[in-house]
Design a binder for these strands. Structure first.
Lengths: 216, 216
DNA sequence: CCTACCGATCGGTAGG
DNA sequence: CCTACCGATCGGTAGG
């Protein structure tokens, strides 16, 4: 792997974990195994390194977009597929979420533009598909599609970052399986989106956990 | 207002906006109108200043807890009251959310402890109340109470931070009124929590927006 | 609460 | 890609 790539990866990791201001280019250089001036040969300033890290992140996001779109436009399991794709993107590397969240807080104005352009089209497309689902009666008609999608993305990011800190409060999750927090989040997203099946004819049961039989 | 308080407020604001590492004690001192050594007379180190800022934040939180608990244990509008209290706490000063989120990312281990002890009891209490609601049939029985509450708190914080950046994508919100994102979030929280009213006997209508009459 | 000052580290450059 | 070095700023101290 060439130095440039190694630098970008180390920088992304460190920026995500300690914030841009909390990381010296010296520290990044050390992790890569070169000196500070050598790093500055590849990226002329710390600021430009930051920008390139973000470019890489968004381009990685763009790579995944086709998967997301296929999930939206393909037949039945749209919802599950879309949520899987969304959560796994951040789950397989939580630093992605951390990086975006930090950037949103550190430089909201700059991020407004990049997020609008990178997320806007996706949101519109998913929202249009959702409106079809509303007309067919599959989805609740009180859903606000654009707002729903954006909230879903935001929650996916937030939950990945909060998990290690807040997860233990609901008890340790069985290794492997999704945590209680994740399962509940999925249930919330599901049940607030789909119309209740006509009573007595529940084709599928609610996604999260199976229905306990209760006194009623 | 005494210097100590002024320092704490300036530090909270700056830490929230630029992160702990991104703020020099010199910068804080300037905003207060004193010199750096003067600030260090009140707080012996930057690190101790940070700790005190967090102590203040959590104690402010503790001040609000009685309101929250009253909201939970008082009769009918429990849900709306609790959500109002939760969102207004972060809405009236978004820096609170920013500060907590930064701290979660910067020092997850330390925050695990403080959050468990400050939030744990509240979560248990609300969860117990919710279980009663489940037994009475008011709340869906597939809700995971602890996980639901924690997710609600997380979402309240995340939405406050994300709003200025992600809000414009769904269009400008009418000034004053809650944004589309906020309304949709409330609707999601509501409709994923309450059982559907027996068809044809809807005492109240769904919180968010009114039901449009649709072809079905 | 201030002036004066400390060593260490910051981002970055010169020159090879 | 490195050695050597720059001025500026960092957190913090001495002394009053």
């Amino acid at each position: 792997m060439d130095s440039r790539t190694k630098i970008l990866e180390a920088a992304a990791r460190l920026f995500a974990r300690q914030g841009f201001a909390g990381v010296s280019i010296q520290a990044i250089a050390e992790q890569v195994g070169i000196t500070k001036p050598s790093l500055l040969y590849h990226f002329p300033s710390k600021e430009q390194l930051r920008e390139q890290v973000l470019v890489e992140l968004f381009s990685h996001w763009a790579t995944r977009l086709p998967n997301l779109l296929r999930a939206v436009t393909t037949g039945e399991g749209q919802f599950e597929a879309l949520m899987d794709e969304l959560t796994s993107f951040f789950h397989e590397d939580p630093d992605r979420a951390r990086l975006v969240i930090r950037e949103i807080m550190d430089r909201p104005d700059e991020m407004r533009a990049s997020i609008a352009s990178s997320l806007g089209p996706l949101v519109s497309l998913v929202a249009d598909t959702m409106r079809k689902g509303q007309r067919s009666g599959l989805l609740r008609d009180d859903v606000d599609p654009e707002a729903y999608v954006l909230n879903a993305i935001g929650v996916a990011m937030a939950s990945v970052v909060a998990a290690p800190v807040v997860g233990p409060i609901v008890g340790p999750d069985g290794k492997g399986a999704p945590s209680r927090l994740d399962r509940e989040l999925r249930r919330i997203a599901h049940s607030s989106l789909f119309s209740e099946p006509a009573r007595g004819a529940p084709k599928r049961r609610p996604a999260g956990r199976q229905r306990a039989s209760v006194e009623r």
